[in-house]
């Protein structure tokens, strides 16, 4: 399957799950489960940063259109799309893993821990940014902090489950093939 088709399919699936499943779960007022931005984390290594940010904007904007409030998630997605390459550079263990593997995964990041740090940091940044933009309306620092931490915890659990169910087996690519 071509990469673009695969990603378009993935994109619509993530959006539908986020809008019609996760947004309807009412665990607690402090918890908003987010999963859709995993799409950005799963994009291939070789995408250049300009395109990555534009994709991020499109992803956030789509969710915002469903919620009738443009701006909030688009802003957060652009932020994590901008920060993603920095984090990958820091966390990737061995030289050349970017060219040997297609996309960030447990395998290519060199272990579950590294991948969860990568996903956890970006999830925290995303949630904090969204709630910060929303908190202009409701105030209160403690409310903001607890909401961010609890939501990030739930999001991480969701990401872990998704990783376990849809394990993305990746071939080790070498120069010979």
């Amino acid at each position: 399957m071509p990469v673009i088709v695969k990603n378009l399919f993935r994109f619509s699936l993530f959006m539908l799950v986020q809008v019609y499943v996760l947004d309807n779960i009412r665990l607690h007022q402090m918890v908003t489960p987010y999963l859709y931005f995993l799409f950005i984390l799963w994009l291939p290594f070789h995408i250049n940063r300009t395109l990555l940010m534009i994709i991020g904007f499109a992803v956030g904007f789509t969710l915002d259109s469903f919620r009738h409030q443009p701006g909030f998630h688009a802003s957060a997605c652009v932020l994590i799309a901008y920060l993603r390459p920095f984090l990958i550079n820091i966390l990737i263990p061995q030289e050349g893993a970017e060219s040997n593997y297609l996309a960030p995964s447990v395998q290519s990041m060199g272990g579950l821990l590294a991948f969860m740090v990568y996903a956890g940091l970006l999830a925290f940044i995303h949630n904090a940014w969204v709630f910060l933009l929303e908190a202009w309306q409701f105030g209160s620092v403690w409310y903001f902090l607890t909401k961010t931490l609890l939501s990030t915890a739930i999001t991480l659990v969701l990401i872990l489950i998704t990783e376990l169910i849809f394990s993305r087996k990746q071939r080790f690519r070498t120069n010979t093939t």
Partner: peptide, 27 residues
């Protein structure tokens, strides 16, 4: 890339501010 990042963020902030004020946006 930095410039694009700033431009996109400004667009987002404009959308947030405009939409909550007038309840309608360009799109």
């Amino acid at each position: 890339n930095v410039l694009l990042f700033v431009v996109l963020q400004v667009i987002c902030l404009l959308l947030i501010v405009r939409y909550s004020k007038y309840h309608q946006a360009i799109f």
